[in-house]
Amino acid sequence: MRHHLVLRVVSKLLIPFIILYGLYVQFHGDFSPGGGFQAGVIVAAAIILYALIFGTERAKQVFKPQALMVLAPVGVMIFALVGYYAMAMGGAYLDYDWLAGDDTTGQHIGIITVEFGVGLTVTAVMTLIFLAYAGRTHEIDDDDW
């Protein structure tokens, strides 16, 4: 889509705000609608928009598939490790009450950490699936549609 000037300019303006909104949905999930999964798909949508406008190859240079392949399991591991940490502190698996001195703080820490793990995995997996698909498609002219 090299010659679509309007699309390029508009998406260049929009993508930072989409990612910022994704981060808001991620870290404000305790107070407003949203959470890790929603934030993950919003950020992934921003990355996919970037790849659509500026080409898959350039997107792969910015968001390296090798790095995404590491981030995807790291997200699940953050979630699982929070559970084991709660066990190590004396509670049950994923019992956030034990993460801090008092129960409420523990719950806050647990929820925000776990949601961060979910967001990481969802962003990485969604982007990787798109890149895997996009890697198979060959460039086609706009007139072909």
């Binding site: 999930g29 305790d30 107070f31 407003s32 609608p33 949203g34 959470g35 890790g36 956030y96 719950q107 806050h108 647990g110 929820i111 776990v114 949601e115």
Partner: peptide
């Protein structure tokens, strides 16, 4: 926390 959905899903 105000968002009950998050509390149920995450905790």
């Amino acid at each position: 926390i105000p968002n009950i959905v998050t509390a149920i899903l995450a905790s």
